[in-house]
Amino acid sequence: MEKEIERAVLRVIESMHENLGEQITIDDMARTAMFSKFHFSRVFQRVTGLSPGRFLSAVRLQEAKRLLASTSLTVTDISHRVGYSSVGTFSSRFTSSVGVSPTKYRQLDCVTPQAFTAGHRDIAETRSVTVKGAILSPLEEQPVFAGLFPDRILEGMPVSYTVLRRPGPYVLENVPPGEWHLMAQSVAPGREDAVNHPPGGDEALCVGRHGPITIRPDTHTELADVQLRPMRPLDPPVLLALRDLLAAAAVQHAR
């Protein structure tokens, strides 16, 4: 039964990719899955970790990243191609999810370490909670990004993050109270563009998660290990632009 549910959810995700320019409703997705609307929403979130609408929004923005990096289409044209009728709404959602505006992303094709530093909340001096553990990955010699996010998706500003030279021990400091998902990613050498494409089942893009992790005011240290695996079509798209962080870490550690 679980395999049948996953196949139904996969049909919906494939339909999302094929019809990004259309206005896709929950009713449309439920019909594609051949479930009732309410049952579909529950099983979709259980399988992917996100609601259908949130997943669709992530797929739209992932395609926008690809078009910005690989075509000369205007931001307005791209926003319409991925299903936004308002370029203002598209730009706002892209900026909050990826870390920079569509225009800046096209110029840099990345998010710099400075962008993360500038976006950090100015409360580091008031907390001292640490999350630490080990990250394992089939990409044994590649840099790894690890960060704490409010949801099961790599988007928006992490409350704490690190970039490792290779899989192994990690430490995330100054973690605020709350419920966080530890998300980690590594990209195969020469396949940095994999983050902008739907997952194909190869090992070019490996992801992992742990959580939710509950941090209370009286917490001092939380232990969490993560095993990375090749990304699957059922995993939410990677929206945060991490290529520059991983590349910068590789250059720094090579010195």
Rank of each mutant, 00 (worst) to 15 (best):
G200A: 12
R31T: 11
L172I: 06
L61E: 04
E18M: 02
R81A: 11
A188S: 12
F35C: 10
V9T: 03
R127I: 15
L223A: 15
V98M: 08
G211N: 01
P236H: 03
D202E: 12
A146D: 08
S97R: 04
A248S: 15
D244W: 01
H181M: 05
D218V: 09
G49K: 00
V131C: 01
A250T: 01
T25V: 03
C206Y: 06
Q252Y: 05
R54I: 00
I213Q: 07
M157P: 05
P217A: 02
Y161R: 12
V207I: 15
R7S: 15
E179S: 13
F40G: 02
F149W: 08
I213F: 12
P236K: 03
V226H: 06
K132G: 00
E222L: 15
A58I: 02
L73I: 00
G99K: 04
E141D: 15
D122M: 09
M16N: 09
T74Y: 15
S72R: 14
A146W: 02
A134M: 11
D28A: 11
R60N: 03
H210C: 10
A58R: 01
P167M: 01
G21S: 14
Q114W: 08
S186M: 08
R31D: 06
E173L: 09
S72M: 05
A204N: 11
V238M: 03
G53L: 14
E4W: 04
V82C: 04
N196I: 06
M34N: 15
P150C: 06
D193M: 08
A30M: 05
M29C: 10
L172K: 12
K3G: 09
S41G: 08
E155C: 07
V47G: 05
C206K: 03
S186H: 01
R216W: 06
F35Y: 14
R42G: 03
K65G: 02
T221I: 15
R54W: 01
F149R: 08
D27L: 09
L67P: 01
D151E: 13
H120M: 15
G200V: 11
P237A: 02
C110S: 14
R216P: 00
L242S: 08
V131D: 03
I13D: 09
S51M: 03
S85N: 10
R255T: 13
P236C: 07
S137Q: 09
A115W: 00
R42V: 10
V131P: 00
E141L: 12
R46K: 10
A30S: 08
K65S: 07
A204W: 09
G208R: 04
H253P: 00
V251L: 11
E6N: 07
L20F: 00
R165D: 14
L228D: 02
K104N: 13
C110H: 06
V238G: 00
G168F: 01
E222F: 15
P158V: 03
N196W: 15
E179F: 02
Y84S: 08
L148A: 10
R60C: 05
R42D: 02
A241N: 08
G53A: 13
L245H: 03
D218Q: 13
T130G: 01
A241M: 07
S57C: 07
R152T: 05
L68T: 04
R243L: 14
C206T: 07
